[in-house]
Design a protein around this nucleic acid. Sequence first.
DNA 1: TTATTTCTGAAACATATGTTTCAAAATAGA
DNA 2: TCTATTTTGAAACATATGTTTCAGAAATAA
Lengths: 191, 191
Amino acid sequence: MARSVEFNEEEAIQKAMVVFWEKGYNGASLRDLTDAMKINSSSLYNTIGDKHELFVRCVKYYTDTRKKDLDRRLKSARSSFEILVKYINDSVESIIGKESCLAIKTAFEVASSDKRVKDILKADSDYAYRFLHSLISRAMEEGKIAKDEDPELLADYFISTWTGWNEAYILHKDPAKIKRMSQYFIKQISK
Amino acid sequence: MARSVEFNEEEAIQKAMVVFWEKGYNGASLRDLTDAMKINSSSLYNTIGDKHELFVRCVKYYTDTRKKDLDRRLKSARSSFEILVKYINDSVESIIGKESCLAIKTAFEVASSDKRVKDILKADSDYAYRFLHSLISRAMEEGKIAKDEDPELLADYFISTWTGWNEAYILHKDPAKIKRMSQYFIKQISK
DNA sequence: TTATTTCTGAAACATATGTTTCAAAATAGA
DNA sequence: TCTATTTTGAAACATATGTTTCAGAAATAA
């Protein structure tokens, strides 16, 4: 029938995601985005849609990627407690060096006034919650976490704490500080 | 000699601060700001300066206000442990209902690319750290916090955790969730 | 009161923004 | 190959943006 789309949509979304990640939603201009994506704005509007739609797709792509990572971790042969500790340590590493988590930046920049974005972030947070909750529960069965701990609370607690580590790293750029806090967290929950 | 400035600068800064707080640095336009401040842009440029300078002043005003609050708390006649617990509970209340903390929003929106703003936020964070550190140390002397706790770590830890509570409230709007986490924190540090 | 200086309001400014238009190029199927 | 349809690139679009200009209003000190 006719010509088909030339650019790879997933690759383009990835490129745009990096721009939003670095500059934020309001800080990223359409030119910044289309330059990075290496497409013309007409192609963008013809396929994905407007700036906001592009942003929603980028945030969704980010959370989908995270979800896959969590699923992969659950399939590991190690004990739940080991998976949990590795996840915590990897989370710390992800803070250091990189721009801090896109989901967190977005939560503070636009989530309170953008329901669609907020819902995506909430679903992401809920998924991480369930991931942590199941690991913590099983680690309690394994006898690695005290039976009197509350897995629901610990899961929420870790998510919150991790967000704070991101801020602390932005302000102080001190990896040791973050590692100290993460070790404290692990020590606190370990039986 | 001549005419003097008509508007009250402190009041104007406060009004602008509210706009930045709600919309973020990039989300707030000069018109939004001057409308709220009820001044003409020529007056703004004639006194305070450009948009960025105004933003810096607003962030500084915010952190100065916080600093005064902490100083006031330290003068209280209550025990250090009681001051600490009250501070934690008040911090939780401040999250609920309001727009989340301007310093945190700003840290995630612009601090990584704006050294001047970052330095103000870092100083604010350091001040809160010293506040918490001294309360925790004294509460340990009072025998209310176990002697084997590390006040430096606990101070950093609370600051991080509190940041996370802000995000959790944006996403879930669930006061009980935040209160549960804060009670857990207090329980954890209590002897 | 007057002279001088400064502030204010409205408008103008240049540029940046998100979005649309449209002719030409491209291509899948007939 | 031809045709119908779609994508693309470049330009145009309207509006929003941060900032500046400047004439006139205001007010201080003489």
